[in-house]
Amino acid sequence: MADLENLSLTLSLVTILMSMILSVIAFINQQRSARTQSGHAVSGPLMLWNRAAIAMVVATVLLITLTIVSRAVQTKHGPFSNMYEFAISFAWGIVVAGFIFRWRYKTDSILNIGLFIALLLLIFARVKYAVPNPLVPALQQSTLLSIHVASAGVAYGTLTIGFGSAIMYLVQKRRNAPWLPELELLDNISYRAVVIGFPFLTLVILLGALWADIAWGRYWGWDPKETASLVTWLIYAAYLHARVMRGWRGIRSAWLLIIGFAAILLTFFGNYIFTGLHAY
């Protein structure tokens, strides 16, 4: 099982890289054909590149899933006991969310930013590989913590897509580039990402608080990782309100999403920055 876990993780690194390269090729071809035969439907070979890129994304999803499953078979619990396991869940969330958003909104640019971040996370995981260790008493709460981390995977994954879309929004606002999706679509994708990500983020915090209540006898203790997750949550709450306000739509909202993503990274890597009860 450990061999399978290693193999699928390594292969997922390959497929994710391939899908990025293929997307770039598809994109360049699309540019060329757009210039030569403007207005025409996507032609045969172009579709082929795109399809190959998507096939690689699907393969990546399957491989990361396989890594998580084979790991869980060994540890007999969800991926919540260290940064290695959690980085893989985060990457999984991004690729799955990116894939779904790509399918729903028919645009790959956002997925590609996500793929790049997922690639970095998988490399991080590879470097931080940890042999499965038995659980210390506080972590012996498998069901709750598995849902906690799964929710975090979904929340962080979708919010990363929202971040990618916000970046595109800012670029598009400056460049007015025909090869990027329209501003309104980008804004919609960001919003949809938050609509899905925010409830899951809420769930992550509530399940964390429930665990703290059971394990330590307090639902909230201003532990740095707790506070960082609250900060993240507040930023996205601010976004949900800002978006409905005149003057805060568009650029400012997009910046809030970028700050929100920075807060996610702070929460995620927080244990390297501050000391607290969370060792992961």
Partner: peptide
């Protein structure tokens, strides 16, 4: 609401660090 949310966010960050 947005301003207060952002103020509380900043204060939380300050408190953490």
């Amino acid at each position: 609401a947005v301003i207060l949310l952002l103020i509380i966010t900043s204060l939380s960050l300050f408190g953490t660090f």
